[in-house]
């Protein structure tokens, strides 16, 4: 497994998909900063800018992982890898590890870039401890994205289908996050009266869990610098990453490879 990880990490660094995703996220970060600095008629604090590019992170991660992991299938190198490993699960674990690393690197690069540039243009209201806390939550979010898209790609076993399904999933998660976010941000009272759009009780709890479970929902929370249940988010991410890894190992074990 270590051999495959080393090989894939070397490949990741040279990968066009990684370079393009990175460039895309940095360009997106720059565009968001310009928009926030110029289009708003009020002073935007740095905290509201740092994680803003993460709203499109799911789509970038889906493209990166499906193309990178899918290259093994389209190029046929998976055959050489399966010949070289003792168990197929070693291949799955190495792919998920490298995909998670790629997603975490993409996330880190975009966050560091936005924070480093943004502090010159926005009011710096960021406490270092909060930044570290939110950054780590974002890392767990990126691990979930990596595991999810890697599992989808490996189980589909074909690059083009993987790219389509992963991108569709990413947009699906994005729209779901927008929906759940619009429900959860409603105040209970509006102008002194009960807000009819406010969702309470069990439904609020279910929407809350759904929002926390969805990486794009987490990105929405990070971008507003408000994460009401950080421990729950962290646990859900770890649980989802572990479950996806185990499931993918089990299903991939008996998959026919062409």
């Amino acid at each position: 497994m270590i051999r495959l990880m080393r090989a894939d990490l070397v490949r990741l660094v040279k990968s066009r998909a990684f370079g393009l995703s990175l460039a895309g996220m940095l360009a997106l970060s720059a565009a968001f900063m310009v928009m926030q600095a110029t289009a708003m008629d009020y002073s935007v604090p740095l905290s509201r800018v740092i994680f803003l590019p993460m709203s499109m992170y799911g789509v970038a991660a889906a493209a990166l992982v499906s193309v990178f992991a899918g290259d093994d299938f389209s190029g046929g190198f998976i055959r050489m890898k399966l010949l070289a490993v003792r168990r197929r699960s070693s291949y799955v674990l190495s792919q998920i590890f490298v995909s998670c690393t790629a997603c975490a690197a993409l996330y880190t690069a975009a966050t560091v870039f936005t924070a480093a540039i943004g502090r010159f243009f926005f009011e710096n209201n960021v406490m270092a401890s909060d930044l570290v806390r939110f950054y780590l939550l974002g890392v767990s979010m990126s691990l979930t994205c990596g595991a999810l898209f890697a599992a989808v790609t490996l189980l589909l076993g074909e690059k083009t289908r993987a790219v389509v399904v992963c991108m569709a999933s990413a947009f699906g998660m994005l729209f779901l996050a927008m929906h759940t976010n619009s429900l959860l941000v409603q105040d209970r009272y509006k102008d002194g009266v009960l807000n009819p759009k406010y969702v309470g009780g069990i439904r609020r709890m279910v929407y809350g869990i759904l929002h926390d479970l969805n990486p794009c929902g987490q990105a929405a929370q990070l971008s507003t610098w408000e994460v009401p249940h950080p421990i729950r988010v962290l646990l859900l991410n770890l649980l989802l990453t572990a479950a996806l890894t185990v499931l993918c190992c089990r299903l991939f074990e008996r998959k026919n490879i062409n």
Binding site: R3, V10, K14, S15, D71, G75, G76, F77, I78, R79
Partner: peptide, 26 residues
């Protein structure tokens, strides 16, 4: 083995492809 089509990464050079295989084989 060469099964059906050669196992290659298209965005790498010939030498980089062989380096990949060397890493995979340890």
């Amino acid at each position: 083995a060469v099964v059906e089509t050669p196992a290659l990464y298209m965005d790498m050079t010939a030498e980089e492809n062989l380096r990949q295989q060397y890493l995979i084989l340890g």
